[in-house]
């Protein structure tokens, strides 16, 4: 029993991380059907917002507010300049966003250098849970991820933006007849996805090495979370994160973490063969 508590908390931490990094992917790839290989770089941008904010004397909480704004603005600008031209052709999307990803990585590295950035997270101590001491920051991460997830679901189900977006995804022609401007909706949706990824970047930063290439680690996993969970449904992200996160945690007790990650991705390919619509399809 004693061992079960840290195990479930570790699994929950990883699931929360996957949930955070995949929500933006669920909007951009799952709902809008745009393959965005620069998704990882939006996460990196979020983490580097924290680096800049702390460099200027600000704290973690300020960065937590600033990062989604930075992500939103950059996402909006890139959507207008590039992404809006490639909605129809998935291969074009792959090439353009991959090019974007390479440029962003290199530019970030040129500005900040190649060595990992030092940042300080909040809550340095640990908290006792049923007799087990667990890092307080991880508990905060779990709570924050669940709250963000709930808020995202609410935005999609209850607000006018969510309604317009869902309408324009079902039939952009019909939606535009009803007075929804699909270009505007697409731009705002893409920027929201970028903002969520940047938010994830700030939350991840205290747990990982912050470098220009940190985002790439989450690219394939977030794709698979969305695919396995069921593209087109936000709640599928929870199912996908839950499955991939708990499997990876369980496996990494027995084998090296990188090999465990590889094995889980391989398993996800097998799952897609037999259930191509995902666990919780829309």
């Amino acid at each position: 029993m004693e061992a079960l508590i840290p195990f479930s908390l570790n699994a929950l931490t990883l699931i929360s991380i996957l949930l955070m990094v995949s929500m933006g992917m669920a909007i951009i790839f799952g709902l809008m059907n745009v393959i965005n290989l620069a998704h990882g770089e939006f996460i990196t941008i979020g983490a580097f917002t924290l680096v800049v904010v702390q460099g200027l004397g600000g704290n973690f909480w300020l960065a937590l507010i600033a990062a989604p704004i930075v992500g939103y603005i950059i996402g909006l600008a890139l959507e207008k300049a590039l992404i809006a031209r490639i909605y129809e052709n998935p291969l074009h999307a792959i090439l353009v966003t991959w090019g974007l990803s390479l440029i962003l990585q290199q530019v970030i590295q040129l500005i900040f250098g190649a060595s990992p950035q030092s940042i300080t997270g909040p809550f340095p101590g640990s908290i006792d849970i049923l007799g087990v001491a667990y890092p307080a920051y991880r508990l905060f991460l779990i709570a924050f991820a669940l709250a963000t997830f709930a808020a995202t679901i609410l935005v999609f189900k209850k607000t006018k933006f969510g309604l317009d977006l869902r309408a324009s995804i079902q039939s952009s022609e019909m939606a535009s007849v009803m007075g929804v401007n699909p270009d505007k909706i697409n731009a705002r949706a893409f920027a929201s996805g970028a903002a969520l990824a940047a938010l994830a970047g700030v939350l991840l930063a205290p747990l990982t090495a912050v470098t220009a290439y940190m985002g790439i680690n989450y690219l394939a996993r977030s794709f698979f979370v969305v695919l396995v969970g069921g593209a087109g449904s936000i709640s599928g992200v929870a199912a996908g994160s839950g499955l991939i996160g708990s499997l990876e945690t369980a496996l990494s007790y027995e084998i090296p973490t990188t090999v465990a990650q590889a094995l889980v991705l391989a398993l996800a390919i097998v799952i897609l063969r037999f259930r191509p619509q995902g666990i919780l399809p829309a």
């Binding site: 393959i35 794709f223 990188t258 590889a262 991705l265």
Partner: peptide
């Protein structure tokens, strides 16, 4: 197909670095 093959390279790279 492109995404799955992309993941394949990441998997292979993970194994090459992690073993």
């Amino acid at each position: 197909f492109t995404i799955v093959t992309l993941a394949l390279t990441l998997i292979a790279n993970h194994v090459a670095v992690g073993w």
